[in-house]
Design a protein around this nucleic acid. Structure first.
Lengths: 239, 239
DNA sequence: GGCCCTTGACACATTACGTTACAATTTCGC
DNA sequence: GCGAAATTGTAACGTAATGTGTCAAGGGCC
């Protein structure tokens, strides 16, 4: 028998919380509940959660912010609950990166089906090796996702700081797309940037140095004035 | 410059087929329709389909059988349409392996969101083949859309600034059509130009220099007095 | 050909970006 | 916990890209 997966439900409506929790428990999950962001964080530390069901319309920190925050911290799968009329696309898109969503009102068994589906996608490693890429090859470089450093064309390692690694990984995940400073800021820090924030520029500059990419005529990390930055290269995953 | 994804809709209800097809076409997809399994198979051979939207309750061979059959043949992503009350779980489960599903009735934009999501998962920009053109060939030049530079007939790279690249891309997207300064301004900056705005002219002038196109008798970027500019050349996409 | 108007081009203003130095913050070893 | 080292953010200034003003060149119309 399967070890039941731990599901954390974050919703401010007490009735919904308990209803869903009971339903999930009946269907062989372990359910935890939280009413807001701080409760969520608390339980994330205490328990080993496998999936989060997150209401979009929370008071205080809303689900959107929380989802971004989660994404900067972990790979934890997220199923969003939204009221009718939300901009569905963006929830699943770049900016937020939820894995699935449901429009309220919904039938509990539909949530069940979607949870199972997301879990299936996220732990496909039933047999043998995981599907996760362990390295990313681009241009003449390799980013080692396990060791968290760069490999030069010659194969020597270049250390990256945490922020540099995350930034580069994000660029590689969205290769050949223009990423605005706001998007980068959200993907890295979980919140958008102040208008005068230059920290992204600085990180890009530092990354360019490590990539030996001259800012005067960069071949990899290009500037798009008024828009943001773009990593220009084909990219290959490898494990 | 995306090559639109090809979506095949399989549903026995003619109204739904055409409605969805039109909606998808409006949203930058190419839509194909079939009423049953044999129509589906026919189109799969003839066209290069990227995703299938499959009604569960087809007469004859039902969606379930078709989905299984598809799974034995290919990795093609499938979004199922189900009537209320179907055993949702099993649709997504191992047995059938659909990637997502929607319960009828649903809003078209929800289908759109789910299609985009499934496509995003199935062709992460990071690995597989992209459906974006990677270069544009025109006259004797090549515009490399990934590296964002020009290639001379001899194959050496000419760097373009952000604005130059965007402008040239727009001209190529609308090759052999007169583009007014207002149109260009809107396409580049998102708002139309002041009457006295000379910035477009200047950018065109700079672009001509890089294209070695003499303004006195331009062969590529021609001036149409009182109208705007036109890029005169056949254009070919390539990836 | 002369006039008007549009466009091309140069100089310079403006703005966004890159980089350096240093301050603030976090991380890590003890 | 404490202090040192590394990382990250802030401020300031230099530099490159882009927009504005001006004027001259050239086409079209009479």
């Amino acid at each position: 028998m399967d070890i039941p997966a731990n599901i954390l439900i974050v919703d401010d409506d007490r009735d919904i919380r308990t209803l869903l929790a009971e339903y999930l428990e009946h269907n062989n999950f372990r359910a935890f509940v939280a009413a807001d962001g701080s409760g969520m964080r608390h339980l994330l530390e205490k328990e080993q959660i496998d999936l989060i069901v997150l209401d979009l319309g929370l008071p205080g920190e809303d689900g959107l912010q929380l989802c971004r925050w989660l994404r900067t911290k972990s790979q934890l799968p997220v199923v969003m609950l939204t009221a009718r009329g939300e901009p569905l696309d963006r929830i699943l898109g770049l900016e937020m990166g939820a894995d699935d969503y449901l429009v309220k009102p919904f039938e509990p068994r539909e949530l069940l089906a979607r949870i199972r589906n997301v879990l299936r996608r996220h732990q496909p490693s039933v047999e043998g090796e995981s599907r996760e890429a362990k390295r990313i090859l681009f241009s003449t470089w390799t980013l080692d996702l396990i060791a968290r450093h760069l490999l030069t064309p010659q194969g020597t390692a270049v250390m990256l700081s945490g922020a540099e690694f995350r930034l580069l990984k994000i660029f590689l995940q969205h290769a050949n797309r223009i990423l605005s400073r706001d998007q980068l800021s959200i993907l890295i820090k979980g919140h958008d940037a102040d208008p005068l924030d230059r920290s992204i520029d600085l990180q890009v500059s530092r990354l360019r140095q490590k990539l030996e990419d001259d800012a005067k005529s960069p071949s990899l990390l290009k500037t798009v004035r008024n828009e943001g930055y773009i990593l220009a290269s084909t990219v290959r995953l490898e494990n």
